[in-house]
Design a protein around this nucleic acid. Structure first.
Length: 453
RNA sequence: GGAGAGGUGGUAGAGUGGUAAUACAGCAGCCUGCUAAGCUGUGGGCGAGCAAUCGCCUCCCGAGUUCGAAUCUCGGUCUCUCCGCCA
């Protein structure tokens, strides 16, 4: 899967190249945990990342080396500060007792300590910065279930559902049909805003509204709590899920207020749990939300940006789970199954791919892509990505939970599109044509309020 | 947008330069039989240690002044009140 063919349904891949941006404070348990992994699982990490076709041996060894040099510093700093604190206390007591001269003597003794602790802090900062630089560029390790591979050619087809019929001779592509039926107006959008900002009109608008309701209510039935999040986020949130700084150019930025338009609901929904310590009883957490999504698609390339295939603004229902590590595989399966029920309800032929390591996003440990067969175009359209990020995002977000033994552990985060509207609309228009009309699948009729366009 | 007031542990709430009172809740232990009370311990994070324990950090965030900052200075942020504007 290259950048061009990514589904609109998931921002995590387009924007998540920033790597681990955690501020590397010595009191940060998460970063320490990552370093622990690097120290203790050096060979496994190098091996796992080789599946992505990259060799991180040098970076890893450099990190281990820097970490080794750095490790004695916190202890030394603590000791220095302890001595300094103790002297300060003495000064306080002497002053109280009116022994000014003695106090002045002790004061002099603190100067050296002050310099020393400031030097130690600088040293630590230096090491941390160097380590971060390296850590930023190491992507998540692929799960054991993920095959090695470099491109979409190496993705595995997990299963195929429904019939692939080629009706390209008798059916129309969605851009022609949408224009003919007067339900989506791309030209008007271009006039009022620009390319990639279509107007939906009449039954086109109602179809959008109905699909959103359909997806939200299915998510609710599956136990996801609905949120209506803000459509703009601050930079802390952008860092939290990995959109910043590397993919900054892909988001719309309001300079006056330093806010970004969300590229996916994943950002506000997952950032609810930034800087959070949960208890194991809280897990799993299941959230969903409908939002418009905004993407600049700067540097977008490829043969097919026509019609609904690539928009700057589109609608999506996103599902998110925060899970404990032992349950996240099952949670991922549940999310995949949920997306299947949606596609089956829409009576669309589809297949599920497990992405190979090299084709996955930077932050993902495992990703399933859903593709819908478009009979009219005679090709597969990507409509959803469902991923488990394991601890990678949690580490950046500082989202942990207290396990049964009272120990703080990183959670696992997962998300998926369920679903993104534009290509679903395209697929509905292209698959369900009959005598020049579009037949609405019966499961959707109650939500849209009509049965044909 | 303008003016003012404020942000302290799970909650309430003291604290104007000497290293976070107190009350309630929760949790743990002890004791006692009596509508459960009493007593003791206990904020959070990180590190060292088998452990008891010890050290550092933490009073919205970040810088600064100082031997020492919840407290003083600067910047930011959020909440509340009043004015203005407004769907």
């Amino acid at each position: 899967m290259n950048l061009d063919s990514r589904p609109e349904g998931d921002g995590s891949f387009l924007f998540s190249k920033g790597g681990d941006l955690e501020e590397f404070t010595r009191n940060s348990p998460n970063q320490m945990l990552t370093l622990t992994q690097i120290r203790e699982e050096r060979d496994q990490i190098i091996e796992a990342l080789s599946k992505r076709g990259i060799d991180v041996t040098d970076s890893i060894d450099k990190i281990i080396e820097l970490d080794k040099e750095r490790r004695s510093l916190p202890k030394e700093l603590d000791d220095t500060l302890a001595e300094s604190n103790s002297l300060s206390r003495q000064i306080g007591e002497l002053m109280k007792a009116g022994k000014r001269d003695e106090a002045e003597g002790v004061k002099a003794a603190t100067f050296g300590l002050k310099q020393k602790s400031s030097d130690l802090k600088d040293q630590m900062q230096g090491h941390e910065n160097s380590m971060n630089e390296l850590l930023y560029n190491i992507p998540n390790t692929p799960s054991e279930f993920v095959a090695a591979g470099k491109s979409e050619e190496d993705n595995e087809i997990v299963s195929t559902h429904g019939e692939q019929v080629d009706l390209s001779d008798t059916c129309k592509p969605h851009w022609d049909l949408a224009k003919e039926k007067g339900i989506i107006d791309f030209d008007l959008g271009a006039k009022v805003t620009g390319a990639g900002f279509p107007f939906y009109k009449g039954k086109g608008a109602k179809l959008q509204r109905g699909l959103i309701r359909f997806f939200l209510e299915k998510a609710e039935e599956a136990g996801y709590t609905e949120y209506i999040p803000p459509l703009m986020i601050n930079s802390d949130s952008g860092f939290g899920t990995g959109q910043l700084p590397d993919k900054e150019g892909q988001m719309y930025h309001m300079q006056n207020d330093d806010l970004y338009m969300i590229p996916t609901a994943e950002v506000p929904l997952t950032n609810i749990y930034r800087d959070t310590l949960l208890s194991s009883a809280d897990l799993p957490i299941k959230l969903c939300g409908y939002t418009p999504c905004f993407r600049r698609e700067a540097g977008s390339y490829g043969k097919d940006v026509r019609g609904l295939n690539r928009l700057h603004q589109f609608d999506k229902v996103e599902i998110v789970q925060i899970s404990d590590p032992s349950s996240s595989d099952a949670a991922l399966d549940g999310m995949v199954a949920h997306v299947q029920t949606l596609l089956e309800g829409l009576e669309l032929p589809y297949r599920i791919l497990r992405l190979c390591a090299g084709d996955m996003g930077f932050t993902a440990a495992i990703t399933y892509d859903f593709e819908v067969w478009s009979a009219a175009q005679g090709r597969w359209l990507e409509v959803s990505s469902v991923s488990n990020f394991e601890t990678f995002q949690a580490n950046r977000l500082k989202c942990r939970y207290k396990d049964e033994s009272g120990k703080n552990q990183l959670v696992h985060t997962l998300n998926g599109s369920a679903l993104a509207l534009p290509r679903i609309v395209a697929a509905l228009l292209e698959n369900h044509q009959s005598d020049g009309d579009v037949i609405i699948p019966s499961a959707l009729v109650p939500f849209v309020g009509f049965d044909r366009i």
